[in-house]
Every structure is written in structure tokens, then in C-alpha cells.
Computed example of a mutant assay.
Amino acid sequence: MVKIDNETEKETVYRFPDGFLPHEVVFAERPGATAEDDGWLLGPVLDGNANIANLSVFDARDIEAGPVYTGTLNHHLPLTFHGCYTPRVGRPH
């Protein structure tokens, strides 16, 4: 995962372990945010070694620190090129 500052051209990088395949991330703004990157990056990740999927959440201001939360999904998550959308609502167990 790479974050590029368009003003300074500085790149910050987080590298997933070998065998982990991240999907496209979605930005979720922190309530009351004023800065462009004040929020979280939510990204599904396939662990190809264990054949399980998870949701990795990063602080968008500091992706190099790694995920602030990782939750294992209880279903298969196929690789996609871009986001997929559904009207179905997920419910906690």
C-alpha cells in the first residue's frame, strides 16, 4: 500500500507479508475531520497462505505503522479489480 503526498511527492509505504493480497481500499473520514487524510483506510486482504480473508483498517495519516485493526472474515473473499457494491446490509453475529 502506498500513500503519495501530491504536494511534496513523498511516498509512504506499508508492505503486507508475502502471500497477502490487498484489495482496493476505501477512505472513511473521521467525524469532525479537517485534514485531507484524517480518517481510516478500510481494505479487504486475502491471506493466500491460509486462504482466509480479513478487513485491515489503517490510520490514513500513518499507514507505515500498519493496521490499527484486523478482523477476520467468516467467508471467502474473491479478488476484485475495483470495489463491489451490494444493497444487502451486513449484520454482526
Results as ranks from 00 to 15, higher is better:
Gly39Glu: 01
Val26Thr: 13
Glu64Trp: 05
Phe58Ser: 05
Phe20Ala: 04
Ile4Trp: 08
Ser56Cys: 10
Ala50Gly: 00
Glu64Ile: 11
Glu29Phe: 04
Phe81Gly: 04
Val26Phe: 11
Gly71Arg: 02
Arg15Ile: 05
Leu77Asp: 04
Ile63Arg: 13
Gly43Trp: 03
Phe81Trp: 09
Phe58Leu: 07
Thr80Trp: 01
Pro31Val: 04
Glu36Gly: 08
Val25Met: 11
Val25Gly: 12
Asp38Leu: 03
Ala65Pro: 11
Gly90Glu: 00
Glu36Arg: 10
Asn54Ala: 10
Gly19Glu: 02
Leu46Glu: 01
Thr12Phe: 12
Asn74Ala: 02
Val89Trp: 03
Leu42Trp: 14
Pro22Lys: 12
Cys84Ala: 10
Phe58Val: 09
Tyr14Asn: 09
Arg91Thr: 08
Val25Gln: 11
Leu21Ser: 05
Thr80Met: 07
Asp5Phe: 13
Ala65Thr: 12
Gly90Trp: 06
Ile52Ser: 09
Cys84Val: 13
Ala65Lys: 15
Pro67Ala: 08
Phe81Pro: 00
Val45Asn: 04
Val13Leu: 13
Ile4Asp: 03
Leu55Asn: 09
Glu64Gly: 14
Leu55Thr: 11
Lys10Asp: 00
His82Tyr: 07
Gly66Ala: 05
Arg88Met: 11
Glu11Met: 15
His93Ile: 07
Val26Ser: 13
Arg61Val: 06
Lys10Leu: 02
Glu7Gln: 15
Val57Cys: 07
Thr34Glu: 08
Asp18Cys: 03
His82Lys: 06
Asn54Ile: 02
Ala28Gly: 09
Asp38Trp: 07
Pro17Val: 01
Gly19Met: 01
Ile4Val: 15
Arg88Gly: 06
His76Gln: 06
Val25Trp: 12
Tyr85Cys: 01
Arg88Ala: 13
Gly66Ser: 07
Ile63Thr: 12
Val68Leu: 10
Tyr85Ala: 04
Ala28Ile: 11
Leu79Val: 06
His82Phe: 08
Val68Lys: 14
Ala53Cys: 12
Thr34Gln: 08
Pro22Trp: 07
Pro67Trp: 08
Thr34Met: 06
Pro17Asn: 00
Gly71Pro: 02
Tyr85Asn: 02
Glu24Ser: 09
Leu77Arg: 02
Glu7Val: 15
Met1Ser: 13
Ala50Pro: 02
Glu9Phe: 14
Asn6Pro: 11
Arg61Glu: 02
Pro17His: 00
Ile63Met: 10
Leu77Tyr: 12
Thr70Phe: 09
His76Val: 14
Val2Leu: 13
Phe20Leu: 03
Asn74Ile: 01
Ser56Met: 08
Gly19Cys: 03
Leu41Thr: 09
Lys3Asn: 11
Glu36Trp: 12
Tyr14Ile: 13
Gly43Pro: 06
